[in-house]
Amino acid sequence: MKKYKVGYTQGVYDMFHVGHLNLLQNAKEYCDYLIVGVNTDSLVQDYKKKSPVVSEQDRLTIVSNIRCVDKAILTATLDKIKIHKEIDFDVIFIGDDWKGNPRWETTKIELKKIGVDLVFLPYTQGVSSTLMRCQEKDAVYE
């Protein structure tokens, strides 16, 4: 039996890569049912000030078809308390590259008040959609 019944994680999942897959597979190891929030294009534009390369519908389709994902949803907020009111989950998973971040430390305290744990999972070093975008811009095509 796994430690948690329902787990939740959220991200952009733009240009889906092995780091995304590792996070999702690791999260599923902790819970019976994994729900993944895929950030909407407008949410990404609001907080990252850039548009995803892959559209929200395509990103949702990709994430929905990952074997370890039980349900994928589009989400238009970063507010985990608000999301919890809509989706009942026991735990949120996030990459450990966010450990110590003031926003996540505050979120951890707020989630604990409603009985939700925050678990930091290993971040896959050397791969990110942002890095892939930069490499794409620097690529020379013949």
Rank of each mutant, 00 (worst) to 15 (best):
K2T: 08
G7D: 13
Y8W: 09
G11C: 06
V12H: 05
Y13W: 15
D14E: 09
F16A: 06
V18K: 12
G19T: 12
L23S: 02
L24M: 10
C31R: 08
Y33E: 03
L34H: 07
V36K: 04
V36T: 09
N39L: 11
S42W: 11
L43V: 10
Q45W: 12
D46C: 04
E56Q: 15
D58M: 10
I62T: 15
V63H: 03
S64Y: 00
N65W: 02
I66P: 12
R67I: 01
V69R: 07
D70V: 06
D70I: 09
K71S: 11
L74Y: 01
T75D: 06
K82V: 07
H84V: 08
K85Q: 14
K85N: 12
E86D: 15
D88H: 03
D88K: 07
F93R: 11
I94T: 13
G95P: 09
D96S: 12
D96V: 07
G100H: 04
E105T: 10
E105H: 03
T106L: 08
T106G: 02
I109W: 01
E110K: 15
E110F: 02
E110Y: 02
V119E: 14
L121N: 03
P122E: 15
Q125V: 12
V127M: 05
S128Y: 00
C134K: 03
K137C: 02
D138I: 15
A139C: 09
Y141H: 02
